[in-house]
Simulated scan of single mutants.
Amino acid sequence: MAIADDNRDMKRRTLAALGVSAVVLGLPATTVAHAAPPGAACAPAVERALSQAPDGAVVQCTGGRWEVYPGPYPNSDRWLSDDDGLDLHGQGMRNPEMLSGPWTAIPQNPATRCRAEQTAVVSAGEVGAPQVVEGQPGQPLHFEVLPVMFSIHLTGDCLWQAN
């Protein structure tokens, strides 16, 4: 487990360095994964979306740049994930980051496949088996976030929006 965490941290640091390099070189944001380091450019399509910086901080696309999210409890109807994935909590816990209801995942490039794996509270102190939905490459994915969703793992270069 520690090796996997070390590898994930190394990959995030590498992606952050690539993201900063792309900004310095003036390359389009689509040439690098959405590591979302603060100060990096973000596309107009993801304005107001929250994501995660390589160091784990929550960031928000504001005015074309990723900025550290100012609030103590991030909650949004727009999230941006990357291939490493984004882990969020739902209404099955205190301070949910993603609320229940209908959502749509929009791939940010034609090869992307959006995937959501959520677990829900089935009784006091018990979480059920993961429920997985996955879209086709380049196609939007429509799905329901469960009312008692405990956690969700979102993957793919996708913008996730509440409907």
Rank of each mutant, 00 (worst) to 15 (best):
M1S: 07
I3R: 10
D6L: 14
R8C: 07
R8P: 02
R13K: 08
T14G: 05
A17D: 05
S21E: 12
A22K: 00
L25D: 13
G26H: 03
G26W: 01
A29F: 00
A29R: 07
T31S: 08
V32S: 03
A35S: 15
A36G: 04
P37W: 01
P38R: 04
G39I: 00
G39C: 12
G39Q: 11
C42L: 01
P44S: 03
A49G: 04
L50Y: 00
P54L: 07
G56V: 09
A57Q: 07
V58M: 02
G64E: 06
W66V: 03
Y69H: 13
P70M: 00
G71C: 05
G71P: 10
G71R: 13
Y73E: 13
D77F: 05
D77R: 12
L80P: 01
G85T: 06
L88M: 11
G90H: 03
Q91K: 08
M93P: 00
M93L: 10
R94T: 14
W103F: 12
T104Y: 03
T104K: 10
P107C: 08
Q108P: 05
E117Y: 09
S123F: 06
G128P: 15
V133M: 11
E134K: 11
Q136I: 04
G138H: 00
F143A: 11
F143N: 01
M149R: 01
F150A: 09
H153R: 15
H153K: 12
D157G: 10
